Amino acid sequence: MSLIEQLKDAQKAAMRAKEKARLGTIRLAMAAIKQVEVDTQTTLGEDEITAVLTKMVKQRRDSIKQYEEAGRQDLADVEAAEVLVLQEFLPQPLSEAELDALIEKAMADAGASSMQDMGKVMGLLKSQVQGRADMAVVSKKIKARLG
């Protein structure tokens, strides 16, 4: 079943179960996907939809951090609940060992030996870890190995 079909089914189930928070989050995701489709005048594939959902999760994590710093735990909790709903539609996250193995392989494939090769390594990894790992974490790990 495609990702968009999963979202539509989850939306219907949330409506039937009268889960307002879950329904709202799924509608936000559907609207974000539709907005990108309208902007680009194309139908998004699985990878593009995953990228949209990943971006939404990242935005919410940033918001959680800001709300907690401002002492607004009530708003941080709402954002955290949205992150949980969105993560249901993303691929399973990579473990530390799996991520390290992918980084090592990409570095070997790119022949990376200095910080100048970081772009090559990131380019190789992006499609493999999209939606499965935080790219900021991936970037830090690569910098640590190259630096």
Rank of each mutant, 00 (worst) to 15 (best):
K8T: 07
K8E: 10
Q11M: 04
Q11I: 02
A14W: 07
M15C: 02
M15F: 05
R16F: 12
A17R: 12
K18W: 09
E19M: 13
E19C: 09
K20G: 01
K20P: 00
K20W: 02
A21V: 10
A21M: 10
R22G: 12
R22Q: 15
R22L: 14
L28V: 08
A29R: 04
A31M: 05
I33N: 07
K34N: 14
Q35D: 12
Q35L: 13
V36I: 09
V36S: 06
E37C: 00
E37T: 00
V38Q: 13
D39I: 02
T40C: 06
T40K: 12
T43V: 14
T43W: 07
G45A: 13
G45W: 12
E46S: 07
E46L: 04
D47Q: 11
D47W: 05
E48H: 02
E48I: 01
E48G: 06
E48C: 01
I49L: 01
A51W: 03
T54V: 07
M56G: 10
V57P: 00
K58I: 06
K58R: 09
K58W: 08
Q59M: 06
Q59T: 05
D62A: 11
S63C: 01
I64E: 14
K65I: 02
K65M: 01
K65P: 00
K65D: 02
Y67W: 14
E69A: 13
E69T: 10
A70D: 13
A70I: 09
G71V: 02
Q73D: 09
Q73N: 09
D74W: 01
D74H: 01
L75C: 07
A76H: 01
D77Y: 09
E79G: 03
A80N: 08
A80T: 04
A81D: 08
A81R: 04
A81Q: 06
E82V: 05
V83W: 00
V85P: 15
V85E: 14
V85D: 14
L86Q: 00
L86G: 00
Q87T: 10
Q87H: 07
P93M: 03
L94P: 02
S95G: 15
E96M: 13
E96N: 15
E96D: 15
A97T: 13
E98M: 11
L99N: 06
L99H: 05
A101W: 03
E104N: 09
E104G: 04
E104F: 05
K105P: 04
K105V: 13
K105G: 04
M107V: 01
A108Q: 12
D109C: 03
D109H: 03
A110W: 14
G111N: 06
A112W: 11
A112D: 10
A112I: 07
A112K: 10
D117M: 10
M118V: 06
G119H: 12
V121R: 03
M122N: 00
G123Y: 11
G123T: 14
L125I: 10
K126N: 06
K126R: 11
S127R: 08
S127M: 03
S127P: 02
Q128I: 13
Q128F: 11
V129S: 03
V129A: 03
Q130W: 02
Q130D: 11
R132V: 11
D134G: 13
M135W: 03
V137R: 03
V137M: 07
V137S: 04
S139D: 14
K141G: 05
K141V: 04
I142C: 06
K143Q: 12
A144K: 11
A144V: 09
R145M: 04
L146V: 04
